[in-house]
Amino acid sequence: MESRGEQTSAQKLDPAWVDEFAELWGNAWNAHDPAQVLELLTDDIVYDDSAWPKTMRGKADVREFLDHGWRAFPDLTFELIAGPHIAGDGPRAAYWWKATATHQGPIDPPGIPATGKQIEFDGVDIHDYRDGKIAKLRIIVNMNDIATQLGILPGPGSTAEKIMVGMHKLRSRHTRS
């Protein structure tokens, strides 16, 4: 990625560069092109996403995550809600975004079959930059909200939720005795 005014080492980040990077990042994800996403990451990327069971280390791990995610949600798109918010203590920025998608393929892991349900959720990216790329990435989403929208978890106040809570209470009593 060519940069203009790139200041992504220990210096303060150039807001214009961060805005440009945020646009490239969003466009890469919305294009569903793994090469575009991976180009914006360092080779030794450390990538932690609430939607994946392990911390990814290196581009091969991230590529596996991308393939699984886009297989399950081939129309996944992101829209920036707020940010980037630049940290004052290092080359870091945070973004608040909204995603929309239709569950058209298996979520694997853990192996949840397609539901055909449309979902909408928001989340936060925290990027740590090095040499004009993301070196560390943390993505935080409310997995309970997503699971509820997909029908994996019961909705708040629903009969199914009440049954689930009742079963948990019985199990708790049983394990204490």
Results as ranks from 00 to 15, higher is better:
Asp33Asn: 09
Gly116Lys: 07
His174Lys: 05
Arg57Phe: 01
Leu66Ile: 14
Ile146Arg: 03
Trp96Tyr: 08
Lys117Phe: 05
Tyr47Phe: 08
Val165Arg: 01
Arg4Ser: 10
Lys162Cys: 02
Glu23Ser: 03
Asp19Gly: 02
Gly5Asp: 13
Gly157Lys: 09
Gln36Leu: 15
Gln104Gly: 02
Arg173Met: 10
Trp96Asp: 12
Val165Asn: 02
Ala60Leu: 14
Leu153Met: 08
Phe65Gln: 13
Pro53Asn: 09
Gly116Ile: 15
Lys59His: 12
Lys98Leu: 08
Ala147Ser: 06
Arg63Asn: 14
His168Trp: 03
Pro15Arg: 01
Val165Cys: 01
Gly123Tyr: 08
Ile81Pro: 01
Ala51Asn: 05
Trp96Thr: 11
His168Tyr: 02
Leu80Ala: 04
Ala99Val: 12
Gly132Leu: 14
Val141Asn: 09
Asp122Asn: 14
Thr175Ile: 10
Met143Glu: 07
Ala135Gln: 10
Val165Pro: 01
Met167Glu: 02
His85Phe: 13
Arg57Thr: 13
Ser9Gln: 15
Gln118Glu: 14
Trp97Asp: 06
Ser172Val: 11
His32Ala: 14
Pro53Phe: 02
Ile45Trp: 01
Val37Ala: 11
Thr159Ala: 01
Val37His: 04
Glu6Ile: 11
Pro154Glu: 13
Leu150Met: 14
Asp48Pro: 04
Ala135Gly: 05
Tyr129Trp: 06
Gly111Ser: 02
Val141Ala: 09
Val62Met: 04
Ile86Cys: 05
Ala87Lys: 05
Gly155Phe: 09
Ile45Arg: 00
Met1Phe: 08
Pro53Leu: 08
Leu41Gln: 06
Ile86Leu: 04
Pro113Ile: 15
Asp49Ala: 00
His127Glu: 15
Pro154Asn: 05
Leu150Ile: 14
Glu6Ser: 06
Asp67Met: 08
Gly90Pro: 03
Pro156Lys: 13
Gly166Thr: 04
Thr8Ser: 11
Asp128His: 05
Ala99Thr: 10
Pro53Lys: 06
Asp125Met: 06
Pro91Arg: 09
Gly58Ser: 09
Trp52Asp: 00
Thr159Asp: 10
Thr8Asp: 12
Trp70Arg: 07
Thr148Gln: 12
Ile112Met: 06
Asp131Met: 07
Gly111His: 03
Ala114Met: 08
Val18His: 04
His85Arg: 11
Trp70Gln: 09
Phe121Val: 15
Lys133Ser: 00
Asp33Tyr: 04
Thr77Ser: 03
Arg71Pro: 02
Glu23Cys: 00
Gly132His: 09
His32Arg: 15
Asp122Cys: 12
Ala114Leu: 11
Pro106Lys: 05
Tyr95Gln: 12
Pro109Thr: 10
Glu120Asp: 00
Gln36Arg: 14
Gly157Trp: 06
Asp49Tyr: 01
Asp128Ser: 09
Phe73Gln: 12
Trp17Tyr: 15
Leu38Gly: 12
Met167Gln: 07
